[in-house]
Design a protein around this nucleic acid. Structure first.
Lengths: 208, 208
DNA sequence: TTGTAATGACACCGTTTCGTATCATTCTAT
DNA sequence: ATAGAATGATACGAAACGGTGTCATTACAA
């Protein structure tokens, strides 16, 4: 058997992977690579449309490795979603912002191709994976609404705190439904800012 | 709809149907039955999860008939969605209502299990069937927003007409995201009315 | 009347896909 | 040092599934 001649053309050093048990480092690196590439594959083809061979090839591992890591296809999907949901909820570099910029950032985030695609995936599989739907909602929407409530409270007093949830609905808006349906592209930064401003003004939270 | 109630004939199974070419009546009856049962099957298992044998058995026809009617699985799915989308857009027995009752009816409609499930299906398959996504949006959301705009204009004047879209977003609300994710059940009539009232007040459209 | 289209029942085919098996190989754990 | 676990490469099995073929049978159309 001709050793390794097929991989000599690849430029990435990570593809010159030897056989045998990997080092602990390699093992960790590989796990994250599997999850990130799995996301891109699932986003492209959906859960049912993605095959294990496709997922394995994208991560440059064999199916065997996928099974030792995640048990089966459903396990890989669940791991991918929970991992990404955790990343979303940790995405909180926006503590010291004004309500306007916070709203703008939330819009850019929830309308991004990545998050819209993830929502599509989880909505599509919400029957098979109800737990993932709950996880995604808790670490996404619920977290965003809590952030908005916090800012509104400090800037406007506790009486206006109940505006956080309707405000979030307006930040999504009809635009987000078209995003989920694949009709609209992601908004530009300028569009996000304008949208945020309009939503805040509608609820009497805008700057005067 | 016209659910052929040969339920009691379960004992003498579906083979009570004769072979050979059906009458024109039977043909029409069968087409609607196929579409309605296809909806329930797709809602239960999703597009990829539903098999042709399952769909055929649910409609009490053979795969052969499905192919003569719709060509292939995708054709059946498309026919089912467009048929239902048309039904939604014709669901306009609410012309002479006040804004409050119109909003309440829209809430009950868009939060219904049927429409939420249809949205889930189309969102899940929006890559494979982009045209269906556009059709559903045009005959659903766009139509609802137009109705709201019409009522707002006649009751409040053309200046407030731009409130129709944000109002619709509030009528969906965070609740609808949880509906899509399968977290919440459909709202009761009382909840729908309360929700409508709260949304209208937020935008200054409520009664005083 | 006569040909044709549609249907049920059922078998069948080819492909896809999940999940395992095998074997050599390399690292980890003890 | 030695056993065991993890991996690459590859092939394979078993099942599911989309779609078609066949034949008898019935209604429609010309």
């Amino acid at each position: 058997m001709d050793r390794h001649s097929s991989v000599s053309a690849r430029s990435s050093p990570s593809s010159l992977r030897k056989r045998g048990r990997p080092t602990a480092d390699e093992r960790r690196r590989r796990e994250t690579e599997i999850l990130t590439t799995a996301l891109s594959v699932f986003l492209k083809s959906g859960y049912g449309g993605s095959t294990l061979d496709e997922l394995a090839a994208a991560a440059r591992v064999t199916k065997r490795t996928l099974y030792t890591f995640f048990g089966d296809k459903a396990g890989l999907f669940a791991a991918m979603v929970t991992d990404l949901a955790a990343a979303v909820s940790l995405d909180a570099a926006y503590d010291s912002d004004t309500l306007e910029t916070l709203a703008t950032r939330i819009i850019s985030r929830v309308h991004s191709d990545e998050l819209v695609g993830l929502h599509r995936l989880v909505i599509a599989e919400s029957t098979r994976f109800p737990e993932l739907a709950r996880i995604l909602h808790s670490s996404g929407d619920a977290r965003h609404i809590a952030r908005l409530a916090e800012h509104i409270r400090t800037e406007r007093g506790p009486a206006s705190e109940s505006l956080a949830e309707p405000l979030f609905s307006l930040l999504l808006g009809e635009k987000h439904r078209r995003r989920l349906l694949g009709i609209d592209p992601a908004p530009t930064a300028a569009q996000a800012a304008a949208h945020a401003d309009a939503a805040l003004r509608l609820l009497g939270l805008g700057r005067h």
